[in-house]
């Protein structure tokens, strides 16, 4: 299996070097960004970008063999993006321990369509990746798919909102019902306020209308 790791100032430059060294076209390569470079200030704190390139033929063959969960998940996501005709790179954040999910972040231009209204397209994409990975590996793997860190940023915003509403609930001693949210977002609210001294949370409603209620009083 031909693979190669290359460091350079930027991801683009590393990619160019890879193509030159291997003498192949961009389409024949799988490129995994291991580290994005930082330019630093006046050369201080600068960090090289590092990528791993794998020759496509070899990559497909390797997928049939014993392969890591993250690699399989990444390949499935790349395949779906390819059949969808979407040009993007997929960055893998490896799970630091077995209890945290594999995180795949899709990067590229103009990817808002992949998120969709209220993240609907993104959750469909994630669901299908999980389903196909489970089928390939014959076991369930927790895979999270993100687009340009949309979910990460959205979760941060939700945490702030939860804390602000909790203060309001504690002060006015009256419950607040939040907007309907998907399960992963409700989970963020519950987790954020689990240790809060003055409020507790519960979910109410069914299906798409299920929402979190923040109420006064420690459970």
């Amino acid at each position: 299996m031909r693979e190669l790791e290359i460091s350079a100032k930027t991801v683009e430059e590393a990619t160019r070097i890879a193509l030159e060294q291997l003498g192949v076209a961009r389409d024949d390569l799988e490129i995994i960004v291991l580290k994005k470079g930082k330019s630093g200030v006046l050369g201080v704190g600068a960090e090289d970008a590092r990528i791993k390139v794998i020759l496509e033929d070899d990559y497909n063959r390797a997928a049939g063999a014993e392969n890591g969960e993250a690699d399989t998940a990444r390949q499935v996501l790349c395949d779906i993006l390819r059949v969808m005709g979407i040009g993007a790179t997929v960055e893998v954040t490896l799970a630091p321990d077995i209890n945290t999910p594999v995180l795949l972040n899709i990067e590229g231009d103009d990817l808002g369509v992949l998120i969709g209204r209220r993240g609907q397209a993104l959750s469909s994409l994630q669901y299908l990746v999980r389903l196909i990975v489970a089928e390939k590996l014959k076991k369930w793997v927790s895979v999270n798919v993100d687009v340009d860190w949309y979910k990460k940023r959205h979760y941060e915003a939700l945490k702030k909102l939860a804390l602000r509403l909790a203060e309001q609930v504690a002060r006015r001693k009256r419950p607040v019902t939040m907007e309907p949210m998907p399960p992963d977002e409700r989970r963020i609210i519950h987790i954020t306020l689990a240790d809060h001294a003055d409020v507790n949370t519960l979910s109410t409603g069914e299906g798409d209308g299920r929402c979190v209620v923040i109420q006064p009083g420690k459970r």
Binding site: I80, M84, G85, I86, V113, L114, G116, Q120, A121, S124, L125, Y127, L128
Partner: peptide, 10 residues
């Protein structure tokens, strides 16, 4: 439904 969503995106 998930397949339809992806088709709709494209």
């Amino acid at each position: 439904e998930a397949m339809r969503t992806l088709l709709r995106v494209v």
